[in-house]
């Protein structure tokens, strides 16, 4: 046996990076050794892309003056997928820990809660990027629509929707910290809850008044308003993007607080060892 206390002088930042790397490895191992997980990851963006892309192609063939609508639809489908995938991926990464009953080992290790959130966010970015690339390429190949054609606003839209998906995903996993796996079905429903409200395929004005108010409280709505304006009127609504950024920051702080309280609540109830039904 060798002696203890072997810790070498590694900087706190280096140890932080190692912990994040450890979390990334955990999910890399999980996905690289599981082809069903890889297929699931790529499946939904491609299916949604294809379904709506062919629908819009049909509209273009059948009716005149629908080319712009078709482009809007395809762009919106891709961006909706970005938002939903980010939030779904955060949920999936957390569920993997619950399903494997690993939360005890994880939170008894030196990893801090903020580092855990940071780690799953990084893994989520990677997972979303990998999942979206085939769908984006498919949109170009099948329907001639390229996200690159949107220019810098396209990058801003994606960034803002990723940001939106992140805080919303954190809110959803708060639900699991609070109610355990009993809330799993609510969590899955939650991933699509925002979509009708943020009006990705239609103007906000078609929503009932109450929902319009809700829509204007959500960052993604401003992104899709700008997207539609850019494609149909060649006008980028920079103000909208700033509002979306501001709302995202506020909600991210709020969601982090809610998640922290849910985590502390689980610590009080013993939920970290017994997150189950």
């Amino acid at each position: 046996m060798t002696s203890p206390a072997i810790a070498q002088p590694e900087s706190a930042f280096f140890l932080f990076l190692r912990r994040i790397w450890g979390l990334m490895l955990r999910h890399y191992y999980l996905h690289s050794g599981s082809w069903p997980r890889l297929i699931e990851m790529l499946y939904w963006p491609i299916i949604n892309m294809a379904t709506w892309g062919f629908t819009s192609s049909y509209l273009v063939q059948k009716f005149t003056d629908t080319a712009i609508i078709s482009s809007t639809l395809v762009a919106s489908v891709i961006l909706v997928e970005v938002l939903v995938r980010v939030c779904t991926n955060i949920l999936m990464l957390f569920l993997e820990e619950i399903w494997s009953r690993n939360l005890g080992h994880l939170f008894a290790s030196p990893i801090k809660f903020g580092e855990y959130v940071c780690g799953i966010t990084v893994v989520c970015f990677v997972r979303t990027t990998v999942a979206m690339i085939p769908a984006i390429l498919l949109a170009k190949f099948l329907f001639g629509f390229s996200l690159v054609s949107l220019g810098w606003p396209g990058a801003a839209y994606i960034g803002l929707l990723v940001f939106n998906g992140c805080w919303y995903g954190l809110l959803i996993i708060s639900l699991l910290f609070r109610y355990g796996l009993a809330a799993e079905w609510m969590a899955w429903m939650g991933t699509w809850l925002l979509i009708p409200i943020i009006a990705p395929y239609y103007p906000v004005s078609v929503l009932p008044y109450g929902l319009q108010l809700a829509a204007h409280a959500l960052p993604a709505t401003y992104v899709f308003e700008s997207l539609k304006s850019q494609i149909t009127q060649h006008e980028i609504l920079s103000g909208n993007l700033l509002i979306a950024l501001g709302l995202n920051i506020v909600y991210f702080i709020g969601a982090s607080l809610v998640l922290w309280m849910a985590y502390r609540g689980a610590q009080k109830r013993g939920g970290l060892l017994q997150v189950g039904e």
Partner: peptide, 11 residues
């Protein structure tokens, strides 16, 4: 062991 080794900062 690899994952937990990184989480614990094992040299």
């Amino acid at each position: 062991l690899n994952v937990y080794g990184h989480l614990y900062g094992v040299p």
